[in-house]
């Protein structure tokens, strides 16, 4: 395995469609809940410990070799908002396309055949990590980091926030990211024996509600 593969996969420029999504930041900006670096940090902390934890655990479980179809159903059950389910599957499909070209793998081909319109992105991410020779912690880190880097980048565009301030937010969240990634990997190891009910199910109702409202806007910069 190459540890540097994690850098390739976690790079914000990895061409898997993430640039068109704000991770809920666009809805939060419009509602006034994000209006600067401090509130961006609050938002990211909330997302990291809810949606971020759940997606990191899904990714880690997929990286461990847990049946991706079971994980996909578990992801559906943990995503009440139909708009977020659509976004997660679209991003999963786009990641699948990029990953099959970069780390060809029979497991990825099988998942693409089973879910031609896309499985949930964290599930795909976990299998991609596996194809790249990475482990469950790596997958969890990657997913947890995406859960905050997406909104931070989007907020730079939405508010013309100073990019140094946005990057400072991510740096300050790093210790909490460690905690979430470890918890997610631990939960994933429990899934191997106890089944997908051992996955965390933390939820952020405002993210779900905001995503539903956002999907109905006529004018928006981001797809979600």
């Amino acid at each position: 395995m190459s540890r540097a593969a994690l850098l390739v996969l976690a790079d914000g420029r990895f061409p898997a469609g993430g640039h068109a999504h704000s991770g809920g930041a666009e809805a939060a900006v419009k509602a006034g809940r994000i209006n600067g670096a401090a509130s961006l940090e609050d938002f990211c902390r909330g997302r990291l410990n809810t949606a971020g934890l759940v997606s990191a655990a899904l990714a880690a479980a997929a990286a461990l070799g847990v049946d991706p179809a079971l994980l996909d159903s578990a992801a559906d059950a943990r995503t009440p908002s139909p708009a977020l389910r659509v976004a997660a599957r679209r991003l999963g499909r786009q990641l699948m396309r990029a990953a099959r070209a970069t780390w060809p793998s029979g497991e990825l081909d099988a998942l693409a055949r089973a879910f031609p319109k896309g499985a949930h992105q964290p599930v795909v991410l976990g299998l991609v990590a596996r194809a790249a020779g990475l482990g469950p912690e790596d997958a969890a880190y990657c997913s947890a980091y995406e859960s905050v880097s997406g909104p931070a980048t989007a907020t730079v565009r939405l508010l013309s926030l100073d990019p140094f301030d946005a990057t400072g937010v991510l740096a300050r969240l790093a210790p909490e990211l460690d905690v979430v990634a470890r918890a997610a990997a631990d939960a994933a190891r429990n899934v191997v024996d106890a089944g997908v009910d051992a996955l965390p199910s933390a939820s952020a109702p405002l993210l779900e509600i905001g995503a539903q409202a956002h999907a109905a806007w006529a004018v928006r910069l981001f797809a979600s």
Partner: peptide
Amino acid sequence: GACPHTAIRDDISA
């Protein structure tokens, strides 16, 4: 996502 050139050049997945 506010970046039309990204969607046609750097990340063409969508």
